[in-house]
């Protein structure tokens, strides 16, 4: 691959990351498939959930460590601030990290964030010393409120978890970008590479993808594609897109066009 000079690394909580793709672990049928996708993604941060031991297979924690990736525990499935805070405390003890991807969902059908419980949990976790990366709706006002209470990153959804619908409201993501100065990470809804590139072009600092990789026909290939797309989108955002016009604009001067006579 051509070496591209990416201007600056992503910095979360003082930690410098070269990769702007964070990957999830959900949906892989086998651990070795996840491992191949992790290698292909070149991700440096991986999010994992916590469950009772009899519902889990061992080995995931060691595998991620072996690859030198950083664990970002999450509170997937939590439906109240209380539950999310207790889960975060267990995660801090299990993984020896203050980082937490805070998810507080409002119901099990839409899996959409519960704004009220989310803000409450974020406030308490920050106070307790956690580095909170908050999964949220694509609402710029809520994004700002999450930054105000001290979240280290804000993670708006592009569309519902696992839907693969991409970014349904690009304007809202662009407004979230304007609203916060902490890292903005597009979380949920990525379906394929172009969605990830769009997120970065809209000004996101990183993208999180889980189902887009694990449920792809070829997860390893999709992990590579997303890594390339995230880089492409990031560089494109730095380069600056041209304005959209409602009319054509010639890229070639009219002056100097040779006169070859009229066609019969």
């Amino acid at each position: 691959m051509m070496e591209i000079n990416v201007e600056r690394p992503l910095v979360i909580d003082g930690v410098s990351l070269r990769s702007r793709l964070i990957i999830g672990t959900g949906g892989f049928a086998r651990l070795d498939r996840f491992e191949a996708a992790l290698a292909a993604s070149q991700a440096e941060v991986v999010t994992v959930a916590l469950r009772r031991v009899e519902h889990t297979e061992g080995g995931l924690y060691d595998l991620i460590h072996r690859h030198g990736a950083r664990i970002l525990p999450n509170t997937a499935g939590c439906m109240s601030a209380r539950e999310a805070i207790d889960t975060a405390r267990l995660a801090r003890e299990a993984f020896d990290t203050p980082w937490i991807k805070l998810e507080v969902i409002g119901d099990r059908t839409s899996l959409l964030p519960d704004a009220v419980e989310l803000l409450k949990a974020a406030t308490e976790l920050v106070r307790d010393g956690f580095v909170v990366l908050a999964y949220t709706t694509d609402d710029p006002v809520l994004a700002r409120r999450l930054e105000d209470v001290g979240c280290a990153a804000v993670m708006p959804l592009g569309s519902p978890i696992g839907s693969g619908l991409g970014i349904r409201n690009p304007h809202a993501i662009a407004m979230c970008r304007q609203a916060v100065s902490v890292p903005l990470i597009l979380d949920a809804g990525i379906g394929t590479a172009s969605d990830a590139a769009l997120a970065m072009e809209l000004g996101c600092d990183a993208v999180l993808a889980a189902s887009a990789i694990s449920r792809a026909r070829n997860p390893t290939a999709m992990a590579s594609a997303l890594a390339l797309a995230v880089t492409a989108g990031h560089v494109a955002a730095t380069a600056g897109r041209i304005p959209r016009l409602s009319h054509a604009t010639a890229s070639t001067e009219h002056a100097g066009l040779p006169d070859l006579g009229r066609l019969p």
Partner: peptide, 28 residues
Amino acid sequence: LVIPRSRWAQTPLVEGQRIEVVRATAGG
């Protein structure tokens, strides 16, 4: 209440307690 690993061996259990043992799993 989370019990730090360093205290597992010194923390006695009593009748009726609820114990949760968790580890990393794929998800989220």
